[in-house]
C-alpha cells in the first residue's frame, strides 16, 4: 500500500511542480510588463493596469480558475470538450492549461506590484547619474536599476514564491490531480489518514529547498549594500 500511495503522490507532486514552474517562468516576465504599464505616463493604460491588478488581487484565485474554465464556452460558445478534441488531447490536459493561465495571470499581478515597488525604490539620483554619463534609457534600466531591484525584491519574492507552492493545491477545483487531491483519493480508498501527512512532507521538503535557495541568492548578493 505504501508503495502505491507513494507512486500516486509522486504523480501528483509532478503536476504540482510543473504548475509551479510554468507559473514562475511565465509570470515573472509578464509581471515586469504589467509593472511597466502601471508606471507609464500614458494615463489610460496606467489606470487600466491598476484596475486589472485590483480585480486580480481582490478576488480569490479559486474563483479566477473557475471563471477562466468557463470563458471559452460562455464567450465564444466553444465547449471545452471541443478544445480537447481539436488539439487531440484529454480533458485533464485542457483543465491543467486553464489552471496554468489563471495562475500566471494571478501571480503576474502580484509580482508586478513587487517589481513596481522595487523599481520605484531606486533613488532618482541613480537615474540622474546614469543620464549624465550619457547612458541610454535601456542601459540605465538594465545595468543600473535592475540589478539593484533584484537585490531589494528577493525577500518579498521569496514569500510570494513559497505561497505559490502551496496555492498549487487550488488546481483540484478543475479536477487536476495535484498532490493533495492524490492524497485525498488515497485516504478515501484505503481509509487511512497518513497520506495527507505524507503530502504535507512533500510541501515541507520542497519549501525547505526553496528557502535554502533564496538564502543562498541573498548571500550571493550581499557583496554590496544599497
Amino acid at each position: 500500500m505504501f508503495a502505491t500511495v507513494t507512486a500516486d503522490l509522486l504523480n501528483g507532486f509532478g503536476l504540482t511542480v510543473l504548475l509551479f514552474a510554468v507559473t514562475l517562468v511565465a509570470a515573472i516576465p509578464l509581471g515586469l510588463i504589467v509593472a511597466f504599464c502601471s508606471m507609464t505616463r500614458f494615463i489610460p493604460l496606467k489606470w487600466l493596469t491598476k484596475v486589472f491588478v485590483w480585480v486580480i488581487r481582490g478576488t480569490p484565485l479559486m474563483l479566477q480558475i473557475i471563471v477562466i474554465s468557463f470563458i471559452p464556452n460562455t464567450l465564444f460558445e466553444i465547449p471545452n470538450r471541443a478544445i480537447a478534441d481539436f488539439f487531440g488531447t484529454s480533458m485533464a490536459n485542457v483543465n491543467f492549461i486553464f489552471v496554468c493561465v489563471a495562475f500566471i495571470i494571478n501571480y503576474a499581478a502580484y509580482f508586478s506590484e513587487i517589481f513596481r515597488g522595487g523599481i520605484e525604490s531606486i533613488p532618482k539620483g541613480q537615474h540622474e547619474a546614469a543620464q549624465v554619463l550619457g547612458m541610454t534609457k535601456s542601459q540605465t534600466f538594465f545595468l543600473v536599476v535592475l540589478p539593484q531591484v533584484v537585490k531589494r525584491i528577493i525577500p518579498p519574492m521569496s514569500n510570494e514564491i513559497i505561497t505559490l507552492v502551496k496555492d498549487t493545491s487550488l488546481a483540484r477545483v478543475l479536477g487536476v490531480v495535484e498532490i493533495i487531491l492524490a492524497a485525498n483519493q488515497a485516504v478515501n480508498l484505503y481509509v487511512v489518514i497518513w497520506p495527507l501527512f505524507y503530502a504535507g512532507a512533500f510541501y515541507l521538503a520542497f519549501n525547505g529547498i526553496l528557502t535554502l535557495l533564496f538564502s543562498f541568492i541573498e548571500k550571493k548578493l550581499s557583496y554590496y549594500k544599497v
Partner: peptide, 18 residues
C-alpha cells in the same frame, strides 16, 4: 549626446552601489 559636453558631480555622490 549634448549632455556629454558636461560632467556632473552630485552632492550625494550617486555612485552605482553594485
Amino acid at each position: 549626446k549634448k549632455r556629454l559636453h558636461f560632467g556632473l558631480v552630485f552632492q550625494q555622490f550617486n555612485l552605482f552601489p553594485h
